[in-house]
Amino acid sequence: MALDPVPAQPLPGAVVVTGADGRLGRRLVRALHRTMPVIGLDHRESSGFPPDVEHHALDLASKRVRDLLKRPGIVAVVHLGVLHDPRARVERHHGWNMLTLRRLFECVEEFAIPKLVLLSSANVYGPRPDNPQLLGEDAPLLAAGRFSEIRDLVELDLFAQGFFYRNPATETVILRPSHILGTVKNAPSNYLRMKRVPTLLGFDPMMQVVHQDDVVSAIVRALSPGARGIFNISGPPPVALSQAIELLGRQTVPLPHGLARVAVDRLFRWRVTSFPAAELDFIRYVCMVDDSRARRELCYAPRHDLGATLSAVDEERWVD
């Protein structure tokens, strides 16, 4: 089933974006607000939204969210507000994320909102030595096995899948993009922003990266009526890690895996680095996705080539 290419048909109502004040959220709001009313929700105070965007600073897990979603005319919810902070206490983190999503599900079901989009990640498949080179949407989500920090995201993804089957009236879309690069403050962008990039001696896995604006365009396409299900999203063709770092003109510091693991673990505990040691697996094994389904059904196609995608991490962060 082919859908109309972007710009998505303007929806006959408003879109609620959670986590609207995140770096990706702000870009999404800007991409949407000219075609449809946008309501941004975030726990942060808004900073520089276009004047026609309604913004509410509130705790996403609070009951006030329900009052907002109760309003007539809301036709879609885009959930970007997943808390990912490796420093936060696990129970708080996990409880908050699950509670927020449950609240959203309840509201979407109760007020019969026809569309729900959750931004998950290709990381939920987990980097593993025996991974197929390109993982399909039906591959098991094995990330939590080696890597408990990502458990939240895996559970949210599975929770949303359950919702998808329970509520056929709502078109639920789960997007699983590969490493998002840009002004966003996620682990892969932070990693590539380092002046000297540490790598693992003797390991050079193939990588997929995707530009933040391509992810935004995928979310916009996911809002088209008729789109539903799980979609992997990736950008330009895969590239070896070493080649990506070379294209960025950075120096690498290869470290033996055993040493790197101990060192990163210590540095994380001393709060010198924000990378948990388990994330080293992402620069050790492949975790790449096959996004042919998104290309076929959402008519998604990345517009940024490899060079543009990689250099996006160096863009000035205050120019949005």
Binding site: G202, F203, P205, Y285
Partner: peptide, 11 residues
């Protein structure tokens, strides 16, 4: 399947 766990060989 254990080849990717070996440094240098895997790359």
């Amino acid at each position: 399947k254990w080849i990717p766990t070996l440094p240098f060989v895997s790359a």
